[in-house]
Design a protein around this nucleic acid. Structure first.
Lengths: 316, 316
DNA sequence: AGGCACGTCGCTCATCTGAGCAGTCGGCAT
DNA sequence: ATGCCGACTGCTCAGATGAGCGACGTGCCT
């Protein structure tokens, strides 16, 4: 930002060359001829203009998407897709709507006829489904059992069927709860032909959508639905995030839990095998969970809002 | 400024590539490898980012000089040097001071030991002289006779001597008024050894400084000092600007006047021969005169203020 | 089904560009 | 004067880049 001593002529010369090259796109050789300089001097002056801050390059967008934050997130965490929605709102329901719409747009844009879509259950996923335009005959696979939420309208099954039917693709669903009281029941349920059939499709899933939960009250549907002993047990194991039933510690490493044996849903290895998992986290409290999920390498796409994105980037 | 339809993923991809290339300076080939694209696609996406306005390149400067306007003026009128001082002031005296300082800086920067400096009489030139640091032994030549201004402190002779003495160069001065009552007297004066000697140095002048006057009351020292009949005569001839006694019409063509024969000072041909004439106009009213002077091709350097620069550029 | 129009993609080739290097000049102490 | 130092300049050469082109795929109309 400093500048040694530069007289006005030098300053204006730098500006003229910077204009000619960077804005009008003329070649340095052409400018050199016009100004009677060597092309090397032109190059040095333009470099000096950039270094001294005379030229500023700024990436911004008139619209709902903060492209700069998005790009930085994508770069930092090697994400395939990243969408940061620029909204000042901080009430959870309206964030969910906005992110749902953005995620729907993203999915509509990136999905191809060859993809197989997996959907986990999360309120944001449900919001996305509502904004989604028909996909090109995409088969849709249910990733998790149903979790009944007070006031929630759709179950995981409903969302999967809705998306599949509007897209003209097959819905691979099963009716089972997300968690059951004991491991034996869970094993039995997984043997059910319907469930086994849906799970059999998991390896073919190429894109999936999920939420991210923080293992704290009110920050994870699964937490809120768990027993007090499970909550504490997972805390003790160092669980920080849950990604549709897959538990991660603060560094993104998978945590094996006894609870997982009592759940009907995708497991860590299966999730890892999905080429692109798109997550839709929201709410500033979830920053640590989002970082954990990003570090895990499970997540290939992120749809979130400015405040959370900034927190996630701020230290990581 | 428009943008066809681009989904969020496309938008963010453009932003990521633009960041990588334009800001971090990585090569398109490197980015292509990293993103799994061809270098051609990378180039096209970056072009699209520029065209769609996603990337903005801005040239600005924290300081007294509006480098962008300066560069635009220089480009439009093929000026060697152009300095637009960014000042909100519009009172003539303070403008004069600011421009004088800027012109002094410019002159100090661009003058070399081989230059010969010519100075016309103008209040802005006088202001410049006061801010000028010593030049490298530059000879200084007086271009015009003396014009006595009510309240003006320096004559053309004083300014030339002052600059020359502080620089350690020779002062080529002559004592004669700028205008005399008849052509015969003017001829006689030009024969004077002292005057002839100074005029003999004119062809060696490499850089000169002058003001620009608009042929209207209060916009030209020369106008104000002229007789009513001269004023009207020159109006009739289409005189728009005077550049230290050289008269130009609105398109910058020289206007031959009978008044010129009664003046002791540089003429059009001699002025045209000066490699770089730096003009210091100020005051928004003078815009037409400045355009005329710039179109004439006489002026190679301009020092002015934002408001006038903008007017000059706005249509030309 | 075939043909057409359009858009997209990646190639070739000539040009542009950057990194590093050697020559030149002015300032300065000896 | 003489020789050194640092700043600046323009060169070489290899790598990066852009313009233009044909190939390909897609959707649409006949």
């Amino acid at each position: 930002m400093d500048q040694g001593f530069t007289g006005p002529a030098h300053l204006v010369l730098m500006a003229s060359l910077a204009r000619g090259h960077l804005i009008q796109g003329r070649s340095k050789i052409e400018l050199a001829a016009e100004f009677g300089l060597s092309r090397f001097k032109v190059a040095r002056l333009i470099d000096e203009a950039r270094d001294s801050g005379l030229v500023r390059i700024e990436i911004r967008h008139h619209g709902a998407i903060d492209v700069d934050l998005s790009a930085r997130l994508a770069e930092r965490y090697e994400l395939t897709h990243s969408v940061v929605v620029d909204t000042p709102e901080d009430d959870a329901a309206s964030l969910r709507e906005h992110l749902g719409r953005a995620a729907a747009e993203l999915l509509n844009e990136v999905i191809t006829a060859k993809d197989v879509l997996g959907l986990a259950w999360a309120r944001a996923v449900s919001a996305m489904a509502r904004s989604l335009r028909p996909l090109p005959g995409t088969p849709v696979v249910q990733l998790t059992g149903a979790l009944t939420v007070p006031g929630g309208r759709d179950t995981s099954v409903d969302v999967v069927r809705e998306v599949a039917s509007s897209s003209g693709g097959t819905a691979h669903v099963f009716y089972a709860p997300f968690t059951v009281p004991d491991a034996a029941t869970a094993r039995a349920l997984r043997q059910q032909p319907e469930v086994a059939r849906a799970f059999g499709r998991l390896p073919s899933v190429t894109k999936a959508v999920a939420g991210i939960g923080l293992w704290e009250p009110g920050q994870s549907t699964l937490y809120d639905a768990s027993s007090e002993s499970d909550r504490q047990e997972l805390h003790r194991l160092g669980v920080c995030a849950d990604v549709s039933g897959v538990f991660l510690d603060i560094d993104g490493r998978p945590v094996h839990t006894e609870l997982a044996e009592r759940m009907i849903g995708i497991d860590y290895a299966q999730m890892r095998a999905i080429p692109e998992l798109i997550a839709i986290p929201y709410g500033v409290a979830k920053a640590p969970a989002v970082r954990a999920a990003l570090r895990s390498g499970l997540v290939g796409g992120l749809v979130t809002h400015t405040a959370l994105a900034r927190l996630v980037l701020d230290d990581g």
